[in-house]
Design a protein around this nucleic acid. Structure first.
Lengths: 133, 133
DNA sequence: AAGACACAATTACAGTTGTAATAGTTTGAT
DNA sequence: ATCAAACTATTACAACTGTAATTGTGTCTT
């Protein structure tokens, strides 16, 4: 996993598609792009190529064209990007970040319960992990 | 607030300092940079200048040098950056993002309680706002 | 008034990104 | 075998970034 290549904003769009389903041809990737994305085919292919240069995508020949698949895991990328965001914006203070998000975000009851659930689990977990000061 | 200028990673470092305390001279900004930042003075001044071009910083003369102060609010910038991050990485799904963060992050008991607190408040708040389906 | 010092302003330069256009190559059809 | 279609690969180009060096200017010192 060798120190995650930097994935740009546009490249993320490609990766998200290929993570969800793969392998995919360039044409399929174009089709799966959000409807409001109006990149030309060439633009998409440029992004794909850059991702290959960055070793984020691999390919296999399939008839006349290539099929692309991810070489880096979504989890790793999400983790790296999250860390970068956290440091840039909140100086790494995860607690602050979360209170901030909670306060600013509209959540459904279901989501709130889910979060509470996780917090409770975390509470017992943590008190096992690191006996309270 | 006119559609927030894009603040780059390095520029964020400058802005965070100036948001915390201002107005500050370039020299002071250099001093307040995290110890592990080894930018030359010139580099810092370049960032300051770019931020002025972007209308993110303003200045006032003070004797021989300038004192800089923010022209855009931290809250707005944090909000914009958070939104961008959320869309890029989680397709805008705030709930997913938060569960993910909660699961990946080590939190102190105090922080956990604080978050639970907020969630409970949010719960009653929301049930007033949008009567549950 | 001249020179030095301390800032600010301008210029530099390579790498990344967004956005393609154009050139090259393989393959299926005739 | 040749042409066209369909892909891939190469090239383009400006804006933004990271990282400064160099130049210009106002002020303090002597």
């Amino acid at each position: 996993m060798e120190s995650m290549p930097k994935i740009s904003e546009s490249e993320w769009e490609i990766m998200k598609i290929v993570w969800k389903e793969n392998p995919l041809t360039a044409e399929q990737i174009v089709q799966y792009l959000p409807a409001d994305t109006d990149w030309s085919d060439q633009t998409v292919r440029t992004f794909i190529n850059r991702l290959m240069k960055k070793k984020a995508l691999g390919y296999q020949k399939s008839g006349r064209s290539y099929q692309y698949y991810p070489l880096i895991s979504e989890k790793e990328c999400v983790r790296a990007e999250s860390k970068s965001f956290l440091n840039r914006v909140f100086n790494g203070a995860a607690g602050l970040m979360m209170t901030n998000f909670l306060e600013e975000t509209q959540l459904s009851d279901k989501e709130i319960e889910r979060l509470q659930q996780i917090l409770m689990e975390k509470q017992s977990q943590d008190s096992k992990d690191s006996p309270q000061s």
